[in-house]
Simulated assay, not measured.
Amino acid sequence: MPFIDIRTTRTVTAAKSEALKSRIGGIIDIIPEKSEAVLMIDINDKCNLFFGGKRQECCYMAVNLHHEAPMENKKEMIEKLFVIVASELEIEQDNIFITISEFPYWGAGGHYI
């Protein structure tokens, strides 16, 4: 199950949340064995984020994956995430930051998987 935590200074309407969810869901299968059916996304808007010592429009995304993914797949996904977030939230790509964390241990549905 991938979990993507999105934090932005922007206000994100219900329609924008749905668009982000759908567009990200449409690319998550870039990562082998991942699909929208098991994707969880948390969108936190109006965050009090500072970048470069000052408040400015920006976005931070933390992508959490169960198991390690090939580097070329992670690179492709990150590049597409930049485009999606810049487009949907109208934030310059220079002010978007993305990290990927990979975990060998994960629990879901009451079980260790």
Results as ranks from 00 to 15, higher is better:
residue 69 A to C: 14
residue 25 G to W: 08
residue 94 D to M: 10
residue 7 R to C: 12
residue 37 A to Q: 14
residue 23 R to P: 06
residue 21 K to V: 14
residue 78 I to P: 13
residue 2 P to H: 01
residue 106 W to A: 12
residue 35 S to K: 09
residue 59 C to L: 02
residue 43 I to Y: 07
residue 30 I to N: 07
residue 58 C to Y: 04
residue 63 V to R: 07
residue 58 C to G: 03
residue 24 I to C: 10
residue 17 S to V: 02
residue 40 M to Y: 12
residue 53 G to W: 02
residue 104 P to D: 12
residue 47 C to H: 02
residue 49 L to A: 05
residue 88 E to W: 00
residue 86 A to C: 06
residue 35 S to H: 06
residue 87 S to W: 00
residue 59 C to S: 09
residue 20 L to W: 07
residue 102 E to F: 05
residue 76 E to Y: 03
residue 28 I to P: 11
residue 58 C to K: 02
residue 69 A to Q: 09
residue 89 L to K: 02
residue 43 I to R: 00
residue 67 H to G: 04
residue 31 I to N: 00
residue 20 L to H: 01
residue 86 A to R: 09
residue 26 G to A: 08
residue 8 T to K: 01
residue 69 A to P: 09
residue 11 T to E: 08
residue 29 D to F: 07
residue 72 E to Q: 10
residue 70 P to V: 13
residue 24 I to W: 14
residue 53 G to M: 14
residue 105 Y to C: 15
residue 2 P to M: 02
residue 82 F to V: 02
residue 102 E to S: 04
residue 24 I to E: 02
residue 13 T to C: 04
residue 36 E to W: 06
residue 30 I to C: 02
residue 90 E to L: 03
residue 58 C to V: 00
residue 62 A to Y: 14
residue 55 R to F: 08
residue 4 I to E: 00
residue 11 T to D: 12
residue 70 P to F: 01
residue 27 I to T: 00
residue 29 D to H: 10
residue 60 Y to Q: 15
residue 26 G to M: 05
residue 81 L to P: 01
residue 42 D to L: 13
residue 23 R to V: 13
residue 110 G to M: 11
residue 90 E to R: 09
residue 95 N to W: 02
residue 70 P to G: 12
residue 49 L to F: 04
residue 26 G to V: 06
residue 54 K to P: 13
residue 87 S to V: 06
residue 57 E to K: 09
residue 4 I to F: 10
residue 86 A to Q: 15
residue 108 A to N: 13
residue 92 E to T: 07
residue 55 R to D: 05
residue 74 K to F: 03
residue 2 P to E: 05
residue 1 M to V: 15
residue 59 C to I: 05
residue 83 V to C: 03
residue 24 I to R: 01
residue 6 I to K: 03
residue 93 Q to N: 12
residue 80 K to P: 12
residue 22 S to K: 15
residue 73 N to S: 15
residue 35 S to G: 11
residue 93 Q to T: 15
